[in-house]
Design a binder for these strands. Sequence first.
DNA 1: TTGTAAGCGTTATCAT
DNA 2: ATGATAACGCTTACAA
Lengths: 340, 340
Amino acid sequence: MAITIKDVAKQANVAPSTVSRVIANSPRISETTKKRVRDAMDDLGYHPNFIARSLASQSTKVIGLVLPHSSGVFFQNPFFSEVIQGLSEGVHENHYALQMTSGKTEFDSYEGVVQMVQGGRVDGIILLYSMVDDKIISYLSKRNFPFVVIGKPFDLVDKITHVDNDNYMAAKEATDYIIGLGHNKIGFIGGSPSLTVTIDRLQGYKEALKASNIELNEDYIIHEDFLREGGQEAVKELLRRTIPPTALLVTDDLMAVGVVNSLTEMEIDIPNKVSIVSFNNALFAEMSRPPLTSIDINIKELGYQAVSSLIQLLKNENEPVKRIIIPHRLVIRQSCGVAP
Amino acid sequence: MAITIKDVAKQANVAPSTVSRVIANSPRISETTKKRVRDAMDDLGYHPNFIARSLASQSTKVIGLVLPHSSGVFFQNPFFSEVIQGLSEGVHENHYALQMTSGKTEFDSYEGVVQMVQGGRVDGIILLYSMVDDKIISYLSKRNFPFVVIGKPFDLVDKITHVDNDNYMAAKEATDYIIGLGHNKIGFIGGSPSLTVTIDRLQGYKEALKASNIELNEDYIIHEDFLREGGQEAVKELLRRTIPPTALLVTDDLMAVGVVNSLTEMEIDIPNKVSIVSFNNALFAEMSRPPLTSIDINIKELGYQAVSSLIQLLKNENEPVKRIIIPHRLVIRQSCGVAP
DNA sequence: TTGTAAGCGTTATCAT
DNA sequence: ATGATAACGCTTACAA
């Protein structure tokens, strides 16, 4: 059995509670005893038991992470690594630990969250996605359990702290950029329509068209998985239209890579025949031939800020609900040209 | 306060210990009381408190993950997502949770591990890397704490359960393949020489040369970070040699992408002027222009098997030390040609 | 400033 | 087959 607080107490000739106070660096302990206790701790190689501490203090210093339930897809997207990087950094700075839960089905994920929450495993939760009608969000809200979502919650937007980009504006700007090049037959290739990020970007796209008096063509809108295969499927579909689009707004780099693959295979020139703007500005965008014009959404920062705001929430009982918007920027490369 | 075992006990008219036994599905409880207790649990919406359970049973059902301390670099490599995917799957199947620890410096990581271990946060640990002279490995070995490493430990190979590829053979096969195309000026671009994976692959490379009576040229061997930038640096260096190599063995796809970038920039034709074989077979390899011949090492399986063997270790006090080798395979694409 | 003792919610060892 | 009760290692009133 490991060294406990009692062993230290005995060695330092004090009560266990005194040792506990020294650990917490309570000001009500004299410097001399503090020193004696600390020496004893070093001497014995004492390390506090987190589990016992958690049980007594009802706080674990662990943050739970909820991945989308189709995590297979999610893992393949560079988005994953990047958020984790930001999360990991934030968590480390604040001396918290990170615990993951995945799950194949929605129910699976839900169960995982319930275990984390009711099992007392975590102090707070970060959702790495946000979709309409989400059971997990309802559950957490109902229980009043501290959580923040990365992205925009579909319901209760003003009741849930979240970290997001202004996806509406980002998509509008991207579309405007394409329109500025003279295009008016612009396709939209997005992820699942139940993800709020898709909804917002679609809206921005529509708004841009409207503002430029370009008629919306529902046939130009396609939804697929955030995967390369999704992009491939989508282009094939779009090229079947009587008048195919001359430009594409693709809401994810990995999809865009699929789009580029398909077009290249069919020997359709990018950007001379088809222009592409994509989102996320992953390394893929830069590596693609031609390199993709893409909207950088600062994914790492999304993660970092999510941790920061969750920890604020944890510290401050009645921290106000916050909505944090991470800035985006259009990175122009070589996938867009003037309309043919 | 949440529903506890006592509340359930009261509601079902039994002792708390009985409820505990029902949770553990002890055979020594009659079916009738089991049913009564379970009904009470459902009724009250009871969920066991993991923390309390952990404290009492001295087992957390959590596995700790140790990332290399230069995690910034690590996160950018698709290797990360892929192992995590395998780990996550394994962990989920076995009803364990995954907890991450990063750390900027080696000392940082070490501290994180000590906290996990002595803090009783985790039942076992998986190391996502392996390098020479590793403090963490020494620490875990000394304490006899259950852990497995992904990759090959440098010391105590036959005392530490690990999941690895046969990197020696893989590199040898890759080099043989290049030699078979008539090359005899073959460069080696590897990661940090303190990583065992680099050491093994270098050895395989050397062995292949030797077997074909090709003289080893130390000037053809470069070590850089597992990053695109690393690859870029390395090629530039190699092209400064009086007789530059006509083929390159690059031990990571992301580096290889950097290599391709640099060569393309200098208008050096791949594969006609320089051939490339890389490792890991990430999506990058396929996406690269030209697509890269790469060795698939089945990263996801590395993760999955690591979890499985760790859990075996946890279940069985004296489970024998294991060495699990995940098969690799050469995926031939278009980055290699006959020697000029 | 420090000690005593009662929890925190389980599991596990004795009894019965 | 079930119930009391003592751990598990810590925090935190309440006393002194």
